[in-house]
């Protein structure tokens, strides 16, 4: 074969083999590491898978944050004003995590319906709301929502929102 052609053939072969190998690996890795976002409403409806890593986002219900000072374990409740999800987390929460502010948690939903978070992200600043939380809250308003958790509050839940 002409050396130039032979060289071309070699290059093409390398590209074909490499590209198919890369595609296969990328697809597998991507499939294993995609974390789908669920609104609290869909989790309450039982749409979210158990034991698989997912993300959930909503507003942090005022008065729902309970912390153990010794172990740094913390539980709180996320809501989209139509359903609630209890979240359990171990460790330090981000600076901007606060009551009545948006937050997104990544973790696994267990059989008791409690979300075991490995990571919690809060909105970045005063104006900014995680887009997924904003979307989850779309068309829902705080006023027509009464959380089962806000009953524990001293204050009137209606005035909280």
């Amino acid at each position: 074969m002409h050396p130039l052609r032979k060289q071309r053939l070699m290059i093409v072969a390398v590209i074909v083999v490499g590209a198919s190998l890369a595609t296969a690996l990328i697809t597998t890795a991507l499939k294993d590491n995609l974390n789908l976002f669920y609104e609290p409403e869909r989790i309450a409806a039982g749409e979210a898978p158990l034991g698989r890593k997912i993300r959930v986002g909503g507003m942090v219900v005022p008065g729902s944050i309970v912390r153990d000072a010794e172990t740094l374990a913390v539980t709180f409740v996320l809501t989209d004003y139509s359903a609630d999800v209890a979240v359990q987390y171990q460790g330090i929460l981000p600076d901007l995590f606060a009551e009545d502010a948006g937050a997104v948690a990544t973790g696994v939903l267990n059989a008791e319906g409690i979300f075991m978070a490995e990571q919690v992200l809060a909105k970045h600043d005063e104006k900014y709301m995680p887009p997924e939380v904003a979307k989850a809250l779309e068309g829902k308003s705080a006023s027509d929502y009464k959380s089962s958790y806000s009953d524990d509050n001293d204050s009137d839940p209606a005035s909280e929102y």
């Binding site: 590491n33 974390n35 789908l36 976002f37 993300r55 990544t106």
Partner: peptide, 9 residues
């Protein structure tokens, strides 16, 4: 759907 790709990928 709203996905995120984790660092392990």
């Amino acid at each position: 759907g709203s996905y995120s790709v984790g660092p392990p990928y």
